[in-house]
């Protein structure tokens, strides 16, 4: 049994009267591709936001490698090695692809305002070294022709890749992917799936993937958790989850997805 790196225990998150997450527990193991699925509004994105501490759950506990991260600032969580992408792309629109990825390198770099303003040899060397790391990622994602374009001008599919690249640039130990293939065509979806599998195989980064594309989830996930109305209704391998009557009921109820197609 692989070692667990992230443990979520009984978290409950309420917005006024709305309970977005209700008593949800799960854990993610080293190198695992864990997937969270569920109908719209089930609370998937909210779980990501509690892990990165953008939202503070009222109850429960979240532990990273055995230590609680409850109440930490989001930037502290990022420094621990947790990176993510966003459902509605959150790139820095006025910055270029290279600058966005270099921003991902922020936590791995040291030059500060003074060495930066003076452009000291050390700061310059660090900028160049990190630029090379960024170029590697750009090559890996096969987007070299876009490198110096402000991201606001890029097509949607490319923006999704840049967001993945920015998260990778952080050299995370856990990567949270919020609907990485939403809105993409078949070809783009296949490319993205290939990148995700490459990341897992070559870099061994653990991932949590929220996704509505059941074909993709059933294909590549190790384990799946199913949420409905903020509650965990099932967890298991793709086969187990597909056979679970509660899951089938939840999805039939929402008319949202067709598990049979997987």
């Amino acid at each position: 049994m692989a070692e667990s790196i992230l443990e979520v225990e009984g978290i409950t998150l309420r917005f006024g009267g709305v309970t977005a997450i209700h008593n949800v527990s799960f854990q993610v193991n080293e190198g695992e591709l864990y997937s969270i699925i569920g109908p719209n509004g089930a609370g998937k994105t909210s779980i990501f936001n509690t892990i990165s501490q953008v939202y503070r759950p009222q109850e429960g506990e979240i532990r990273w490698r055995g230590n609680s991260i409850m109440g930490e600032m989001p930037d502290v969580v990022a420094n621990l090695g947790i990176a993510r992408t966003f459902q509605n792309i959150e790139l820095f629109p006025q910055m270029t692809v290279v600058e966005n990825l270099l921003l991902g390198r922020h936590i791995r770099m040291k030059n500060n305002w003074l060495s930066g303003m003076l452009w000291t040899p050390k700061a310059r060397r660090e900028e160049m070294e990190n630029r090379e790391r960024v170029e590697d990622i750009i090559d890996f994602l096969e987007i070299p022709e876009w490198r110096n374009h402000p991201v606001a001008l890029l097509p949607y599919g490319i923006q999704k890749l840049v967001e993945l690249g920015r998260a990778l640039a952080m050299e995370p130990e856990l990567l949270l992917l919020d609907e990485p293939v939403a809105g993409m065509n078949l070809e783009e979806t296949e490319d993205m799936a290939r990148f995700i599998l490459d990341i897992r195989r070559e870099l061994g980064i653990a991932m949590i993937m929220v996704e509505h594309d059941m074909g993709l989830v059933m294909d590549i996930a190790d384990r799946i958790m199913v949420l409905d109305f903020g509650e965990k209704i099932a967890e298991g391998t793709p086969e187990e989850v597909q056979r679970n009557p509660d899951v089938i009921a939840a999805y039939l109820g929402s008319g949202d997805l067709h598990i049979g197609e997987a």
Binding site: V54, A78, F86, E90, F92, L103, H106, I107
Partner: peptide, 10 residues
Amino acid sequence: DRDIAAEVMG
């Protein structure tokens, strides 16, 4: 550009 995303990036 995006303060919350910046925080989440560290």
